[in-house]
Write a protein that binds this DNA or RNA. Sequence first.
DNA 1: GTCCAGATCC
DNA 2: GGATCGGGAC
Length: 327
Amino acid sequence: MLPIVPIQQALLAWYGRQGRDLPWRHTRDPYAILVAEIMLQQTQVERVIPKYHAFLVAFPTFAALAAAPTEAVIRAWSGLGYNQRAVRLQAVARVVVAEHDGRMPATLAGLLALPGIGRYTAGALACFALGQAVATVDTNIRRVLVRVCIGELSAQAAACAKPAAALALAEAALPAEPDQAYAWNQALMDLGAMVCLARAPACDRCPLTAHCRTFAQLQARTLFPTGAELPALRVAEAPAGYATKPRVAKPSQPFKESNRYFRGRVVAALRAAPAGAALALDEIGPQLKPDYSAADADWLRTIVAGLARDGLAAWADAAQTRVTLPR
DNA sequence: GTCCAGATCC
DNA sequence: GGATCGGGAC
């Protein structure tokens, strides 16, 4: 582990000047931060921002979300994808109201016990909402720490694909002063999202090049590294097992024929229906594929049954011919 | 095509 | 460890 303090100082100074002005950085309301963190799972910041504001207007508190019809929550999730997150977020609100007196759990273990809250989100909540000096690793933080502290072209980089190894790295890098953890974690994500990009890092705009293992590796091969050459070098020089993994050629059907695609289309049809209204499978089918016929009924029923299992749809009749969003 | 402030299930 | 879960942007 290379000396971390100069890296912390350089990154925190850059964050003070260049850090993004994001809505959830203006609040310490645990509920608002929870909403943001769930929305941000596998979803870019730019797409979350408008949905974040609208969601907080519609459901301003744990109590409001817990009491809302699930149908309304699923509608508010439109455009974000991974719709089960909407169901799980409301489940969290209901647990918080019913079992924690309306307040978010104040420990990492308590947070991890909530539905849909994994290690990243629990760590983010502990740090961003509770002010605790907790390390957390998302895709940006892992990439930045590996590049700076390990070196992307080194053999050790592959080991950090394991969550436990990446978390250990993040814990070792956490500032000694507990009150700097918030800015540190946010700064790592900003650098990853704005400068230390996955495809083409902008090393010419990076505040950490003087400390960065990967930049040093690039300098050993290029006179004036910009970062743009990293992908090619990664392929050319990657240690066995990293980046050039055998990568079995997966048959991979077209997305428009996938179960995943049709699940999204069914939920979209249910959202478009009037509140409380049930749709017959025979009404939904033609919206999914123009040549829908009675022969496709079993297939569609299977799609809907999967959604019902995930809390994203509900049968309106025992014969399973009509569907609604869950109440 | 790849990538993205992941989590859950097997 | 692998598969699954959306959808928008590049």
